[in-house]
């Protein structure tokens, strides 16, 4: 259980526990009409499901801070719908379901170091490095003479992720991708070198 907070502790980024789920305050406004009482208007986002809702608190309201912890983990392997990670300091292994891995599934390669987020001791999500390097496993040849037009084509990465890239990219190339946008950044290594 996290520490007890009062409404005056509320601000953007504060994490609360509501009905057993962790929520983060994504928008916050203090208001106090005329000679009336202080109201703390919050937009809350469920840190597991991503759903948002608005709630207004009064200064007398109290709630529990969400008990959050973050640990560096190394991705080991996948077994069916479960993903296995190892804590880089304790070497403890933890499995996480596909649902909790979420979009990160597109960028997980063996030995990648990630930050794993825990709520009350249970893993609820991972944060990837901003950039990862992945190999292209399947690419149709580009059409010659069309390289300068800014046109793109889809290619498949080693994780199965399909992404739009410039036409000069070939199978076997290693690309740098931005995990926040999911977009291609640059080519690191060509299949020919």
């Amino acid at each position: 259980m996290g520490s007890v907070l009062t409404a005056s502790d509320l601000r953007k980024g504060i994490k609360l526990e509501i009905d057993g789920d962790p929520y983060t305050v994504v928008d916050f406004e203090f208001s106090k009409p005329g000679k009336g009482q202080a109201l703390y208007r919050c937009r809350l986002r469920n840190m597991i499901t991503g759903t948002q809702f608005d709630r207004t608190y009064r200064s007398v309201d109290k709630f529990n801070a969400a008990d959050m912890d973050e640990q560096e983990m190394e991705y080991l392997y996948r077994e069916g719908k479960m993903f296995c990670f190892m804590n880089t300091s304790s070497f403890e292994q933890i499995e996480m379901s596909e649902e909790h891995v979420g979009e990160a599934i597109h960028f997980l390669t063996e030995n990648l170091k990630v930050q794993m987020l825990f709520f009350s001791g249970r893993p609820i999500g991972i944060t990837l490095p901003n950039f990862v390097e992945l190999e292209v496993t399947q690419a149709d040849p580009g059409i010659k003479g069309d390289t300068a037009s800014g046109a793109t084509k889809p290619v498949s990465m080693a994780t199965g992720y399909v992404i739009q890239v410039p036409l000069f990219i070939e199978q076997g190339d290693v690309l740098r991708l931005d995990t926040r946008s999911g977009a291609y950044v640059e080519r690191i290594k060509t299949s020919k070198s």
């Binding site: 009409p33 009482q37 208007r41």
Partner: peptide, 14 residues
Amino acid sequence: DQQRFDLDLVTHVE
């Protein structure tokens, strides 16, 4: 009721 009054003042009237 002060709570209802303040809340509606802030969200609907002001």
